[in-house]
Amino acid sequence: MTASLTGVDRLGEVFAAAKAEDRAALIGYLPAGYPTVKGSLGLLTQVLDAGADLVEVGLPYSDPVLDGPVVQHAVETALRAGVRVRDTLGVVEQLAARGGRAVVMTYWNPVLRYGSGREGGGGPAAFARDLANAGGLGVITPDLVPDEASGPTGWLAAADREGIAPIFLVAPSSTDERIAATTAATRGFLYAASTMGVTGARDAVSGTASTLVARARAHTDLPIGVGLGVRNGAQAGEVAGFADGVIVGSALVSAAEHGRAAVARLTTELAAGVRGQHTGR
């Protein structure tokens, strides 16, 4: 961990470095604990080594309402194998120790409940502290909207205190008013959901994605990452044409079912895609 830089600063560096190369950043998602904790560490390492600029480490949760069948299956597998919240932080720590940049993607209740069995109190403040200590840069919360983050949960304050980025989502259905409020609460980068639906690879990138990015840019200078539905280099290249980051999740999880080599292959293809070097397939 770089001592003087916060997680928010270091996320800024990720996007600045990509921009300096005149390309979008590649962000890969895989859940911790799938197929095992050690296995997930290996896969995420592979994603970083094969060209991703940042990884999202998924925190397996029992009720992932915004996830499609591929991610659901992976997190169910991880939970059945007994993965714990501390394992997710452990994976982040080990990635960070070797220079990898990672944020956590988690539904809200595990953060809310974090460390509840522990003396000295837990909750969002403790989660933010432990994540920062592990070298994590931010937290994406698909079922927490800023409306509930500034109130009694104190999430925005906790994240700010630890220098980690609270990363919120905007969707094609978001009103301009909500986009303004959401971008104002977000640090690091904004997550734009490309389409109305759950996670999962799709044949075509929704046309609503570029419109949403353009609408969000009217409200913020934050980098904007686009997720949901990207599955190959060509799509990554397409999204890189209008976004600052290309987020790939389900397609990597599907590849993970076939092992590290498949994950490396897909990541290499996606990395070429965000560099405009994809040759089509």
């Binding site: 409306d147 009694p152 259905s173």
Partner: peptide, 20 residues
């Protein structure tokens, strides 16, 4: 106005459904 009964209630849900 945001649907809280004391500390309970509210909206813990995806942004995509907030408009709905």
């Amino acid at each position: 106005e945001a649907g809280h009964f004391g500390p309970y209630g509210g909206r813990y849900m995806p942004e995509a459904l907030i408009a709905a």
